[in-house]
Simulated assay, not measured.
Amino acid sequence: MPEAPPLATEHLTRVVDGQTLVADVSIEVRAEEVFVVFGPSGSGKSSLLRLLNRLDEPTGGTVYLDGTDYRTIDPRTLRRRVGWVPQRPTLIEGTVAENVAWGPTLRDEPVDEARLHELLDRLGLSGFADRDADRLSGGEAQRVAIARTLFNDPDVVLLDEPASSLDAAAADRVESLLADVMAAYALTAVLVTHDADRARRLGHRGVRLHDGGGVATGSLDALLSG
């Protein structure tokens, strides 16, 4: 019997007050790939992403994590296993290290200092561990948010246009470092973007959305030229 994909959706749907935000989307995300959710503004990209770790609840269909219906998984456990990097980071008051270690700290788990520093190094933040989070640039703060999510060792990482709020130079830096860290740790990720060039540089396969529905899935060349 074939192994279940790390993440899959089956007829995933969300309707709110008669408006269809996500319409009957069925996808499979393979291990160690970056799966791109592509489409114009208002097509349902972020709405789909929010369903994948139950930040919002589906009104139809479901999501499977390693073959298990995610409705049977405790939401806190689910959100640790399916990590989220938002468009705009929200950091806690304190140091960079305290932000990165926030998840284990909340769970009263030991903090692996060596792994924390390795992750900061990978994201171009060497020497930043003791810096106050409120002294960071936008690009630095976004990289700390990425490190915080990855430090939880998620099975799947959800990336909601993680460079869209940055200027061009900072966005390019975040994209380059993100590509490196995803390859280094063989991450499985779902990336929301409306930028076809970024999708090509970071992604492997994907789905193109229109009005909340998946109009095409498969290779990025086919999706982005369609």
Rank of each mutant, 00 (worst) to 15 (best):
T95R: 09
E113I: 13
P104D: 06
E93P: 08
T77C: 02
A101F: 02
Y64D: 01
R71A: 12
A114P: 02
R88C: 01
R81N: 12
R107F: 14
D108W: 05
E118N: 05
G61A: 00
G103Y: 08
T90D: 12
A114L: 07
R81K: 14
T90N: 12
L78D: 07
L106K: 10
E113A: 15
G60F: 02
L119Q: 01
T105W: 10
P110N: 05
P75Q: 08
D108C: 12
G94A: 12
R76S: 12
L78C: 07
P110L: 06
G83H: 05
Y64G: 00
D66R: 14
G61Q: 06
R107M: 12
P86A: 09
A101Y: 04
H117K: 08
I73V: 15
G94M: 10
P110Q: 02
V100P: 01
P86W: 00
G103L: 13
R71Q: 13
E98P: 10
G94N: 11
G83L: 09
I92D: 06
V63I: 11
Y64H: 14
P86Y: 01
I73T: 12
D108L: 15
W84R: 03
T77W: 04
L119T: 00
T95A: 11
R115G: 06
P89E: 03
T68G: 09
R81H: 08
D121S: 10
G83A: 08
E109T: 07
L116H: 01
E118S: 10
G83I: 11
I92Q: 11
P75V: 14
L120W: 06
P110T: 04
L119M: 04
W84V: 07
G67K: 13
P89D: 05
G94P: 04
T68E: 15
G61F: 04
R79Y: 08
R76T: 15
R81S: 07
L116Q: 00
D121I: 02
E113R: 15
